[in-house]
Each structure stands twice: as C-alpha cells, then as structure tokens.
C-alpha cells in the first residue's frame, strides 16, 4: 500500500470517526435533556385549589396537582373541565416556564381574572394568587410538604 492510498484511507476512516464523534456530542445533549426531564417530572410543580364553584363542577375544595401546562375551559379536552355557563370552551391556560407561573387568556368571552384584574394575553402568577374562570375561583398553591 503506497503513501497516498494510506493517507486516503486515513481520511476516509477519519470521516466516519468524526461522524461518530458528532453522535457522541448528540448523545451527551440527549442524555442531559433526559435527566432534566426526569428530575422535573419527579416533583409536582404546584397545585390549584378550587375555592368557589357555584355549579359544583369542579367541586369546591378539590386540589389538582399541576403539570407544566394546564388548560381550563368548558370543553372536555381541557385538563380541568369547568362546567360553568360563564366559562368559554377554551378559556385559559396555566403554564410553568422556567421558574415562574403564567396564566394566559385564550380569548374567552367573559375574561380570565387574576386577583380581580382581567388578564390581557399573558400575566405572571404567583403562589397564593386567585384565578377566576367563569364563576369558578381557584387558588395557586405550593405542593404541600410531604405530598
């Protein structure tokens, strides 16, 4: 095998090697994401407590553990179905982004209220804040210790 053939093969194998190096980088990124997801899903992010519900659905006093995304409305596809004549089908959505909670009105007819203020588009939300969808009122709380 002459020098050129040898160096050509070094190049060829280096190419395949570099392709696999890229995969090593990819695998590291994937693994990190996976670990983050596991630790995130390991703990509940918060809970919503029903503090007032004239129609009874959801029942008063119900405590709902929250995912990163929770939708509220009259439509059955929502995470929390609010059976109230003043609630819209797709009423509002609660999201946990980074380290804070946000509430977003999804174009409801009667509006979403945060501590009595009507929410325009998106508003940040803190623990203890009160949320009103239709006539149903919720309170955002931390997960009870040990729960």
């Amino acid at each position: 095998m002459d020098a050129f053939t040898l160096s050509l093969w070094v190049l060829r194998l280096a190419f395949v090697g570099l392709l696999y190096l890229f995969f090593v980088f990819l695998a590291r990124a994937l693994w990190r994401d996976l670990r983050t997801t596991i630790t995130e899903t390991g703990r509940a992010l918060g809970r919503l407590i029903v503090v007032g519900s004239p129609g009874g659905v959801p029942p008063e006093g119900l405590s709902v553990p929250l995912d990163a995304v929770t939708s509220l409305g009259r439509d059955v596809n929502n995470s929390i179905v609010v059976e109230d004549d003043f609630a819209s089908a797709d009423h509002a959505v609660l999201t946990f982004r980074g380290r804070a909670w946000y509430v977003e009105d999804r174009g409801s007819t009667n509006g979403t209220y945060l501590n009595g203020q009507r929410v325009e588009n998106v508003a940040p939300m803190g623990f203890g804040d009160e949320l009103q969808v239709g006539r149903v009122r919720f309170r955002l709380e931390r997960v009870a210790p040990g729960a």
Binding site: P58, V64, L66, S79, I80, V81
Partner: peptide
C-alpha cells in the same frame, strides 16, 4: 392523570 375529569387519555 387524575386532573382530567372525563377528559381524553
């Protein structure tokens, strides 16, 4: 997912 009363899977 207990918080989906009557909801989809």
């Amino acid at each position: 997912m207990s918080q989906r009363p009557g909801g989809a899977p």
